[in-house]
Design a protein around this nucleic acid. Structure first.
Length: 423
RNA sequence: GGUGAGGUGCCUGAGAGGCCGAAAGGAACAGUUUGCUAAACUGUCGUACGGGUAACCGUACCGAGGGUUCGAAUCCCUCCCUCACCGCCA
């Protein structure tokens, strides 16, 4: 959520930035500005009317104490009109605030100046590419067939138990999952992140805090009976840990990480391109989250990006880094890097991480602030990234490392799997 | 699920219609003193919004929302949450 004061004072810039994000309702900006103007006027009127009412009440109290009953009664007569006016203005203010709020949450975050223009994934900028794409034998298989061949992931069983998009990992497949989670967590800890184990169902306020609600209601599984949501990413609980918190400046940056299952409804996406592990309703992910001083957040974004890349290098996976264009970026982000790994048998890039700086967009909703030495309280910046999401990593490991004698586990992972081959 | 108790500032905790944005203590921060540490002393010590270049002023907030009253942290109603005990249970 953008700050009204910022919009008010930077109208031109806001409009210009929104256009980079292909925002379709620029007229909202002016509506918000005029709504805010009316809101401020109304509040001024309300404040002075309340002040008058307060002062009369005080005088009455004073007169009563001195036993001057008649004078007190005289003053009381003034009260009803004021009271009515206070109520009127209060209602008006509340409705203006509500309207303002409902409009301002429709504005996406402003993209950073380095964000390329563009409307879709086609326009993303390849910032960096690393590693050799492996050349596979003629009879190479996509990962869903490899999974069946070695009996390590069972999509059919998942269908029976739950439905499509909920696979069952078996034997070395299950161990591989566990190994990757530990591998990612250990490296996050090494990079200074504190491991957390948050709840994986959250309340409405948390969904709002990180921006999933109200915009992306349909993306989450909703537990209606208790009005709770299954988390689509650990970002939600881990960032909301700091909702309504005022940190001390010297506590920054806050670095947390968490492994959680993630649940996404992914309504409307079916078909061949989402086969196998490519897109699931439940998957595992290790997330890294930072809360930063506004002046440091872009350095931190680079640091997080480097961390994610170091994991991919250790796993010996060819990858590329995309700088997302305005049109492809999420609603909440100011700058996002996507990391994609090469899946050799499918011959396509698959996103395994998304690292974003949200600047104050989330912290404004979360009321996540910090207080400097000078005593000034201001909004912190929040950032997060996947480090990493498992399914597509597994897909890529299976496809890229398939050989005559089985699937080779990269050396860095062997201490975690305790086996070198899936065969 | 049943019964009971309770939600006040960073924490503990007082306040029970006006003198309360809120005592007191602790924590924290700044300073004085001390050879260092500790102690002692002094001061600072909520947030948001509105107005003002600023000092500052106004308004709102004592779980949330309504109500009574000239006036509500305090009285009434509704809801939410927490804790304790019982039941069930990994």
């Amino acid at each position: 959520m953008l700050q009204v004061s910022y919009i008010r004072e930077n109208r031109e810039k806001v409009l210009e930035r929104l256009s980079v994000k292909n925002f379709k309702q620029p007229e909202l900006v002016d509506e918000i500005i005029s709504l805010d103007e009316e809101r401020r006027q109304t509040q001024s009127q309300l404040d002075s009317t309340s002040a008058e009412a307060n002062s009369i009440a005080k005088q009455i109290g004073e007169l009563m104490r001195q036993g001057q009953k008649e004078q007190a009664e005289g003053l009381k007569a003034k009260s009803p009109a004021l009271k009515e006016r206070v109520k009127e203005l209060g209602d008006k203010l509340a409705s203006l605030e509500e309207k303002l709020q409902s409009q301002i949450v429709l504005l996406p975050n402003l993209p950073h100046t380095s964000v390329p223009k563009g409307v879709s994934a086609e326009d993303n900028e390849v910032a960096f590419e690393y590693g050799e794409k492996p050349s596979l034998p003629e009879n190479a298989l996509p990962h869903w067939e490899l999974a069946a061949k070695y009996d390590i992931i069972d999509f059919e069983l998942g269908n029976k138990i739950t439905g499509a998009g909920f696979p069952v990992y078996k034997g070395k497949g299950a161990k591989l999952q566990r190994a990757l989670i530990n591998f990612f967590l250990d490296h996050a800890e090494e990079a200074g992140y504190r491991e957390m184990q948050p709840p994986i169902v959250v309340n409405e306020a948390s969904g709002f805090g990180t921006g999933q609600l109200p915009d992306k209601e349909g993306q989450m599984y909703h537990v209606g009976i208790d009005n709770l949501y299954l988390i689509p990413t650990a970002e939600v609980p881990v960032t909301n840990l700091y909702r309504d918190v005022i940190l001390k400046e010297e506590e920054l940056p806050v670095k947390n990480c968490a492994y959680t299952p993630c649940f996404r409804r992914e309504a409307g996406s079916y078909g061949a391109h989402v086969r196998g592990l490519n897109r699931l309703h439940q998957f595992d992910k290790v997330e890294i989250v930072q809360i930063s001083h506004p002046e440091k957040s872009y350095d931190i974004l680079e640091e997080m990006s480097a961390h994610v890349q170091s994991l991919l290098k250790k796993l010996e996976l060819p990858y590329r880094v995309l700088r997302l264009c305005g049109g492809d970026m999420s609603f909440t982000s100011a700058l996002t890097y996507d990391m994609e790994v090469w899946c050799a048998a499918q011959a396509r890039w698959l996103e395994v991480s998304s690292v974003s700086n949200f600047e104050t967009f989330q912290s404004n909703r979360l009321k996540l602030r910090f207080k400097g030495k000078e005593g000034k309280t201001q909004l912190a910046h929040t950032l997060n990234g996947s480090a990493l999401a498992l399914p597509r990593i597994v897909a890529s490991l299976l496809e890229n490392n398939q050989t005559e004698k089985g699937i080779r586990i990269p050396a860095a992972l062997v201490p975690y799997t305790k086996f070198e081959w899936i065969d």
